[in-house]
């Protein structure tokens, strides 16, 4: 269970640097070094005055099962939002008018965020989930020539499986 630091909350009081027995909290990119972090130590979490450090597990639980009816009804909305994003994106890419492009980009971005959220609730919340793993595995089946196979293989080897 390594510690993670939320940069947006960190107030640079640096107490985590003082209390860390291994120096895991002291890094050039502000991300706590997982390889140095001691399982279950929590000293930095308790010392941090801004509540910016939390503990995440290496292995996550299986995700809550989703009912087919719920998935289907969310997918219907996803399809509509994907089409709205595509139209807005097309306008943004083809117009010569900077204000129209700005407006279309905002509409496209808003739709993308809603689609991502709907996918989260239709079974793809956790990158480590069985659902995600099956999706990635299915991408290895008959890929197109230019498909980034290595990215998929990298994810399948890096992401830990769920199940506590």
């Amino acid at each position: 269970m390594p510690a993670v630091r939320n940069i947006a909350l960190c107030t640079k009081d640096c107490l985590c640097l003082y209390v860390c027995p291994t120096g895991a909290t002291n890094t050039e990119n502000s991300i706590i070094d997982v390889d140095k972090c001691i399982e279950g130590c929590r000293k930095c979490v308790d010392a941090c005055p801004s509540g910016a450090i939390s503990i995440v597990p290496l292995i996550y639980p299986h995700q809550q099962a989703k009912e087919d009816n719920v998935i289907n009804s969310l997918n219907k909305l996803i399809k509509s939002k994907v089409e709205q994003e595509r139209i807005a994106e097309s306008i943004a890419k083809t117009t010569d008018d900077p204000i129209r492009r700005q407006f279309a980009t905002a509409i496209s971005k808003s739709n993308r965020i809603m689609i991502e959220d709907l996918f989260r609730e239709s079974g793809y919340m956790l990158p480590q989930s069985d659902e995600t793993r099956r999706l990635l595995e299915s991408m290895l089946d008959n890929p197109q020539e230019d498909f980034p196979l290595e990215a998929v293989k990298g994810l399948l080897s890096k992401l830990t499986k769920t199940g506590i």
Partner: peptide
């Protein structure tokens, strides 16, 4: 379009875990 958003969602999930 769906797969693109599904994967950008999972990218955000990794970002939140600092992966």
């Amino acid at each position: 379009g769906e797969l693109s958003a599904l994967c950008s969602n999972l990218a955000k999930g990794c970002e939140k875990q600092y992966l």
